[in-house]
């Protein structure tokens, strides 16, 4: 058995199965280290589903993911197109944008929390100076806005990575198609809609799927910026699972929520795998 495979089976495969078992038991601090655990069937899932916060979390996770990925891909595509014009500093500038992706998410989350502060935050100061708003916006304190504030931070983190993948895709497109289109008098919009987007579709699909998978499981950004609040308005599945397990110490409830997260991601991953397998054998 290869060492890396063994390592992953022990530290990921086994916990994955263990998590499924946990979700059908009643494990809290009292019987964590052993002791008798009861099989409780689907009780944990039922308990979780009956809580309002579960539905809210699924809803928030979906909005968070779709909102983040949508803007990341669009902005990433615009930037990739811009930097694909081979001007002097293109490669260098595109490279240093990666910094936003490199910074530990905890730090980024804290930084955005600072900038979005209602009194001292630079964002409100700027918006008020420009008279876009008259009153400070409660970016993270207002339940109606907080989710989008967290999404904004996440978009910022993800833009360079999307740009990078799309740039690679753009640079692999055949140039002669563009040349003959120019000869036929096509303008840039026609080239975009009739050549670039159709040719780039497989790459865009991969980027969308990867973005969905990596955003759907987000934890750090939300946990640091809002902790799921105010009044659950930014609670997502991963923060909810964490709260059940490590604030309430109801490990089985946490496991049940984590499994719901896992099942959704697993289905998406299968679709993704089918998609890339069509392109090439792994």
């Amino acid at each position: 058995m290869l060492p890396a495979v063994l390592f992953m089976l022990v530290l990921i495969g086994y916990p994955l199965l263990y998590n499924i078992i946990l979700s059908f038991q009643n494990v809290d601090l009292s019987n964590l280290a052993g002791g008798n655990r009861e099989f409780v069937g689907f009780d944990n899932y039922r308990t979780v589903a009956e809580e309002d916060v579960f539905g809210i979390s699924i809803h928030n996770t979906l909005i968070y993911t779709v909102g983040s990925v949508f803007f990341q891909v669009i902005i990433g595509f615009c930037l990739a197109s811009f930097f694909s014009m081979k001007f002097k500093l293109a490669g260098f500038l595109r490279g240093i944008m990666m910094i936003s992706w490199l910074i530990p998410m905890t730090v980024t989350a804290l930084l955005f929390k600072f900038m979005m502060g209602s009194e001292e935050g630079i964002l409100n100061q700027l918006l008020m100076a420009l008279h876009f708003v008259e009153e400070p916006v409660g970016w993270l304190s207002s339940p109606n806005i907080a989710l989008w504030s967290v999404i904004i931070a996440n978009i910022w983190i993800g833009i360079p990575f999307n740009m990078l993948l799309l740039s690679t895709g753009l640079s692999s497109l055949p140039q002669d198609v563009y040349e003959s289109a120019s000869l036929d008098g096509a303008n840039w919009w026609q080239k975009l809609v009739h050549i670039t987007l159709p040719l780039l579709k497989p790459v865009i699909m991969v980027v969308l799927m990867l973005g969905f998978i990596y955003t759907f499981k987000v934890f750090d950004v939300v946990y640091v910026m809002t902790g799921g609040g105010p009044i659950n308005s930014t609670e997502v599945l991963s923060t909810l699972a964490f709260r059940y397990s490590f604030s309430d110490f109801d490990f089985s409830l946490g496991a049940a929520v984590a499994n719901v997260l896992f099942i959704i991601l697993f289905v998406i991953s299968l679709i993704y795998l089918r998609m890339i397998k069509k392109d090439e054998a792994i």
Binding site: L11, I12, Y14, P15, L16, Y18, N19, L22, V27, L32, I213, Y214, F216, K217, F219, L237, S238, A241, F242, S245, F246, F251, G254, A255, A258, N259, L261, F262, L265, S269, Y272
Partner: peptide, 13 residues
């Protein structure tokens, strides 16, 4: 692609 949250509790135990 796995979320850390899924393996977190089992690894903790």
């Amino acid at each position: 692609m796995l979320p850390a949250t899924v393996v977190l509790t089992p690894l903790f135990i």
